[in-house]
Amino acid sequence: MKLLILGATGAVGTEVLRLALDHHEIHQVVAPTRRSLPSHSKLINPITPFTPLDQGADYWRVDAVICALGTTIKQAGSKQAFALVDRDLPLAIAKLTKSLGASSFALNSSLGAKRGKNFYLNTKAEVEEGIAELNFNSLTIVRPSLINAKRTPPRLGEQIGLCLAIIFQPLIPKRYRPVTPTAIAKSLLQGVITAKPGFTIIESEQLR
């Protein structure tokens, strides 16, 4: 399998990359990033700003895609910039890779993704729906709760939420408990390797 990883420098993407490079069924990993990754014999690491997409690049020709792109409105600077990273870019790359032969796609989304007034969750629902409409042979969507990871730069709101969640974990329903990047990465990777036909949603409580 030739696998494309989007967001390979993030908390979840870093774990996906590590697991993918060690997996015997994956012979090549393509991880386009804005900054260089450590070299590896199985890794192709195009350096790109992503906007605009280099649609003619050969590295988009893969068997499967894992998307772990994600930011926050605060880090992005605006709702528009956030939507570009979390919705527009994943959709554009999904369309491109599907047109070039990719058959499996796995997306890291969010607990509670649905259409509504919450801009964040509505955006997550929009990207889920958009990719589902492309009709990949296999689509896996993972919806984690708070991600228990050290961020650079730190996300203050997430850190506060994690502290409270850890303190009160025995009282919190499993769906809302923090999950590790490794647990999410394993589900994403398993999704494209197993390539179960159709559309599979993995909720946060299933990541344990």
Rank of each mutant, 00 (worst) to 15 (best):
T97H: 02
V16R: 06
P181T: 06
L100F: 01
I44D: 14
Y120W: 00
Y59V: 05
Q169M: 13
T97F: 04
F82L: 03
V62L: 06
L91V: 11
H23G: 08
L91N: 01
P197W: 15
R61M: 14
T51M: 14
T72E: 08
K174G: 12
L69V: 07
S78V: 07
L84P: 08
I166V: 13
F119L: 10
S99A: 14
A195G: 01
R34Y: 13
R155F: 06
D86H: 01
L3I: 03
A195I: 10
P170V: 13
A125N: 12
A125Y: 14
V62Y: 06
L43T: 00
Q55K: 15
S78C: 10
L69A: 04
K114H: 09
P144D: 03
I47R: 08
T123N: 05
K95N: 07
T33G: 00
L107R: 02
A125F: 14
E205C: 00
V16Q: 08
N135A: 15
L96G: 01
I66L: 06
G161A: 11
S110C: 06
V62F: 11
P197R: 15
V16E: 01
M1E: 06
A68V: 08
P52Y: 03
A102M: 02
P197Y: 15
V85Y: 10
E25Q: 14
S36Y: 11
D86G: 01
L171Y: 10
D58E: 15
K79N: 15
L207V: 09
A113N: 03
R208Y: 12
K42R: 15
N108I: 02
I167A: 02
E203A: 08
D58F: 03
L89S: 11
L43K: 07
V179G: 11
V65I: 04
K95H: 09
R35H: 15
A81F: 00
A64F: 11
I172Q: 09
N108L: 11
S39V: 13
A20G: 03
K79Y: 11
I93P: 12
K150S: 13
T14V: 02
E133Q: 14
G191W: 08
G116T: 06
A8R: 01
L107D: 00
S138I: 01
S41H: 15
F82H: 11
